[in-house]
Design a binder for these strands. Structure first.
Lengths: 138, 138
DNA sequence: GTAACTGCAAAATATTTGCATCCTT
DNA sequence: AAGGATGCAAATATTTTGCAGTTAC
C-alpha cells in the first residue's frame, strides 16, 4: 500500500513528500479521473493550489499520470499503468465519462479499435472518450 | 458562398451580424479546428474577446460548431455538418491532430468504430482523437 | 420600435513565476 | 549540507458578467 506509492515516486526519481504521497493515494483510492479542483478538495489535508499544479505537472512529465481529453474541455488526470514510461506514453485504453454522475473511468480492458484514415495520414496515437451511463448509475 | 453563411445563421434563428459572418467564414475557409486565439487573430478584423466567446457559445448551443477534446486539453472548435441539430449532436467522426503542424482535421469519412465496454456501461456518444502526421506534412 | 448583439469595464477564475523557507536525501 | 519541494505573494492569462450604446429585423 503505502510502500507501493513510495515505490512509484522513487522509481521516477522524485523525493517522497507528503503532498505527493497524498495526491497519489487519492488517485489510487478514487480509481477515476480527477480535476485539479477535486484534488484540492479531497486530499483531506490542505495543499496549496500551486503545489498541486506543480505536482500534477511533475507526475505528467514522469509518466505517472496522464491527462484525459474531455468533450467539455476541462482538464482531467488519471493514473497511468505500469507500461507508461517517461517520454512515450502508452495511453491506449478507453476513457468513459458518465453523463449522470460525471465520473470519468479508465477502462483498461477496452482497447482502442483500428481507425481507418484517409491516405496520407499516419496514426501515432489515438484517444477514445466514450460517454453514457456507467455501471453505478445504470 | 456569402448566402450559405447567412443561411446557416438564419436556419438557427440568429441575427446576421458582421462578427458572426466573419467567424463562420473563417471556419469555412480554414476547414480545420480553431482555438479561441486563432479566431481572434485570423478574422482579419478585430472583434472583442468577449464577442468571440459569446459567438462560440451561441454556435455551440445551436449546433453550428462542436468542441473537440484534445490531448493537451486546449479548447478547439470546428464546423458541424448538416446532420448536427440543436440539442442532440451527431459528432460521430474522427478528429485528427497533426503532431507536425498542429492542424486539427475533422475526418468526416472515418467513422467511429465500435468499442466494447464492460457490462453495465451504456454508450451514448464517442469521441475519437487520433494524432500523428497529416497528409500535408507526410 | 424592439429585441438582440456588441464592446468596454470590471469581476471572477485559472494558471504561472519568483523567492524565502522547509524538508528529503 | 545541498538540492529539491513547498507555500505565500504577486504577476499573467482566461473566462464570465453587467451594462450602455448600437444594429438587425
Amino acid at each position: 500500500m503505502k510502500s507501493e506509492i513510495e515505490d512509484i515516486l522513487k522509481r521516477s526519481q522524485l523525493s517522497v513528500t507528503d503532498s505527493r504521497k497524498k495526491i497519489l493515494e487519492l488517485f489510487q483510492k478514487t480509481n477515476a479521473a480527477l480535476a485539479h479542483a477535486d484534488i484540492e478538495k479531497k486530499t483531506g489535508e490542505h495543499f496549496d493550489r500551486v503545489t498541486i499544479y506543480r505536482t500534477l505537472q511533475t507526475f505528467l512529465e514522469k509518466g505517472i499520470i496522464h491527462s484525459i481529453p474531455t468533450a467539455d474541455n476541462s482538464v482531467l488526470y488519471a493514473l497511468c499503468k505500469d507500461e507508461c514510461a517517461e517520454g512515450h506514453h502508452h495511453d491506449d485504453h478507453v476513457h468513459f465519462i458518465c453523463d449522470e454522475c460525471g465520473t470519468t473511468y479508465c477502462l483498461e480492458n477496452s482497447t482502442i479499435p483500428e481507425v481507418k484514415l484517409p491516405k496520407g495520414f499516419i496514426q501515432k496515437r489515438a484517444d477514445v472518450v466514450v460517454s453514457g451511463i456507467c455501471e453505478k448509475c445504470n
